[in-house]
Design a protein around this nucleic acid. Structure first.
Ligand SMILES: Nc1ncnc2c1ncn2[C@@H]1O[C@H](COP(=O)(O)OP(=O)(O)OP(=O)(O)O)[C@@H](O)[C@H]1O
Length: 631
DNA sequence: TGAGCGAATTCGACG
DNA sequence: AATTCGCTCA
């Protein structure tokens, strides 16, 4: 066989993986060893050797990682080649369910409940179960945990023994009824129902096995039991499954990720070819050595060392800040310095453990006018964005959940009592004044629906903003916050332009789907050259020349919250992931005090810092006296 | 009905 | 500290 162009730049083991022909393939490797590179080349190679792109399905867990993989594949293939399906497990499942869900009772136009819808539904469930005083979050967590472990509510109810478990079973049952009422699925259902479908319908299973001949799963260490079973059932007799993973990067056990999937792969798929990649090509020798030092402290792991291939590089820079403000300013100033030295902003990432930490960082970046973007799932969770989307959903398909949201936004003189009668179709009982208001609201929705069915999406959104009175509401109030809200709404309109060419109202459905799947709004836009701010979780699978890891304090990173459902060694793996995102420079910072719930609390440096060999580090400063030490 | 106020909650990561 | 919740009262 002639040497494929997709083998260029690969080492021997990587080539072996790319060229492996048929049967299960397992690629195990540490961070930065070229796993993603290898599978993207493998996908391109398969296509190059005649496998139709549509026969290949590549999935991973996060939006970010899926986008990264898709872009890398696109980059490798000749321009104009059809792309294989590269997406998240969840969005693949949505597609499957829309097409075949009927046989497990899922209608084609089902909606997806986001966190907010879910909370509302569980609150209603608690009410129906006569347990209004309970905290919905506990039940959401419990239900989600069970669903992620492949347990359905019937099985759970059957096996619930403990008193608390019995409560959960009752609430869960009511919650399921709420889902059915709304023709909705929650995120966990997307996977669970797909599994049920594949188990239950032989015909669909056959069709789907036939649809894809090659299955590729990245970040396999983070798959849960449901995903594992789905993968098994999607496999046809050719058994062309290729998975890639690193036990040390398993950071989703709190989402029921099972290391056993990776550990037991060879047992599950007899005849597996195993390829191990040992060299780290991403990071400098210093970063690689420090990462090794961190991860080897974990007891429950299979020993493995990253072999550095690159030069030693610069030391790891440490910074001790007075408080979180000081830390943010240090980071922002260093970033500014890097940019002055011709580093493209897109090659800089600032990572943190918890989302709330982004706030101070943003403020510092704003003051220094550094272009940045907060990468995350939060855009579609913003109240003002959800309001507009609720108008869209409610006019397409009137439902309680969305009506509840929009009925008083902006206020229109319809309160609880009127609303209750309105949804119960008891408008006759209303006073004439109230009835007129309800009528006006209904007419408004009708007009929006008309618009949705005829106009390009961005025009529809503009119309909705006007018709609903939202625009006037934002413009009347002029404080900084309202202005920001309005900006976000404008941003949503901008995003929607990309669906303008779709035949109405399918553009609206697409936008709602993107929102429901928590797609990253930045991926929906052209790439921009900005500094990325994101959580460590979101950064998995990505790489940057310069990485800042902030908030390295006991209780924050590692997080103080430990529960019986999470692996205690996971925080360390998370830090390992964070460090290994860096190619050239790694900056680690911590504050001596931090605001917690508005109160200033003293902070102790993270135990992780003490686990890094001092010879690999250099102090970039203490307190406000950051020095310029970058080589 | 909904403005206005005090109380409660937020700060666990993702889809 | 800032935002959201939820209750009271005009
Ligand atoms: N054989 C190689 N020669 C040179 N560079 C390589 C080689 N293999 C991979 N790389 C480079 O190493 C970097 C890391 O690769 P990749 O992102 O595929 O690693 P990974 O194993 O998926 O990492 P992680 O699991 O940490 O996300 C990339 O910049 C890639 O181009």
């Amino acid at each position: 066989m002639q040497e494929s162009k997709y083998l260029k730049g690969l080492n021997q083991a990587q080539k072996e993986a790319v060229q492996h022909e048929n049967g299960p393939l397992l690629i195990v490797a540490g961070a930065g060893a070229g796993k993603t590179k290898t599978i993207t080349h493998r996908i391109a190679h398969l296509i190059g050797s005649g496998i139709p792109p549509s026969k290949i399905l590549a999935v991973t867990f996060t939006n970010k990682a899926a986008n990264e993989m898709r872009e890398r594949v696109r980059h490798l293939l000749p321009a104009g080649t059809r792309m294989p399906e590269v997406s998240t497990f969840h969005s693949t499942c949505v597609r499957i369910l829309r097409e075949f869900g009927r046989s497990v009772g899922v209608i084609e136009r089902f909606t997806i409940f986001n966190r907010d819808d879910q909370t509302r539904a569980v609150k209603r469930a608690l009410k129906n179960a006569g347990m209004e005083d309970e905290n919905p979050r506990y039940f959401i967590a419990a239900i989600s945990r069970e669903k992620g472990s492949g347990v359905s509510h019937t099985t759970y109810a059957r096996e619930a023994r403990a008193l608390r478990a019995h409560d959960v079973a009752v609430v869960w049952q009511c919650y399921e009824e709420e889902l059915v009422k709304a023709s909705a699925l929650d995120f966990d259902d997307l996977l669970l129902k797909t599994l049920e479908l594949l188990e239950h319908s032989e015909r669909t299973r056959g069709l789907l096995q036939n649809r894809w001949s090659h299955l590729v799963i990245d970040e396999y260490q983070d798959t849960n039991v449901v995903q594992y079973k789905i993968a098994r059932l999607l496999l046809d007799s050719g058994r062309n499954i290729c998975v890639v993973g690193d036990l040390d990067q398993c950071i989703y056990t709190w989402r029921q990720a099972r290391l056993e999937n990776l550990l037991g792969f060879e047992r599950s798929f007899p005849g597996t070819k195993v390829v191990t990649l040992k060299e780290n090509y991403r990071s400098t020798g210093t970063i690689t050595a420090a990462a090794n030092g961190i991860i080897e402290k974990n007891k429950n792991r299979i020993p493995k060392q990253l072999l550095a291939t690159r030069e030693v590089g610069e030391p790891i820079y440490l910074f001790e800040a007075r408080d979180e403000l000081d830390e943010a300013w240090f980071v922002a100033e260093k970033v500014q310095e890097l940019i002055k030295r011709a580093t493209p902003p897109r090659e800089i990432a600032v990572l943190y453990r918890d989302n709330f930490q982004s706030r101070v960082l943003e403020e510092a970046f704003l003051s220094l006018q550094i272009p940045y973007r907060v990468v995350g799932t939060r855009f579609f969770e913003r109240k003002e964005v959800k309001d507009v989307l609720s108008y869209v959903r409610a006019s397409l398909n009137p439902n309680i959940s969305d009506m509840e949201r929009i009925i008083a936004t902006p206020p229109r003189g319809i309160g609880q009592a009127t609303f209750a009668k309105m949804v119960a179709n008891k408008e006759r009982e209303l006073s004439p004044a109230a009835r007129a208001k309800v009528m006006a609201f209904r007419t408004s929705l009708e007009r929006m629906k008309k618009a949705l069915e005829t106009l390009p999406l961005s025009e529809v959104l503009r119309f909705i903003l006007e018709e609903s009175g939202l625009e006037r509401m934002y413009k009347e109030k002029k404080d900084r916050e309202e202005a920001e809200h309005f900006e976000n709404v404008q941003e949503l309109v901008n995003l929607s332009v990309r669906y303008d060419s779709a035949m109405p109202p399918s553009g609206a459905h697409s936008l709602l789907e993107e929102a429901a799947l928590q797609s990253d709004q930045d991926e929906m836009r052209d790439d921009e050259n900005r500094v990325s701010l994101m959580t460590v979780h979101a950064s998995k699978g990505l790489e940057f020349e310069n990485v800042f890891v902030t908030g390295l304090e006991q209780g924050l990173f590692p997080s103080r919250r430990l529960d019986e459902h999470t692996d205690p060694e996971e925080e360390r793996r998370l830090f390992y992931v964070a460090m290994t995102r860096a190619k050239e420079r790694l900056f680690l910072s911590f504050a001596r005090a931090r605001l917690r719930y508005g109160a200033r609390e003293p902070a102790v440096p993270s135990e992780f810092l003490g686990d890094i060999d001092e010879r690999l580090t250099a102090w970039a400063g203490v307190g406000e006296a950051a020095e310029s030490v970058i080589e």
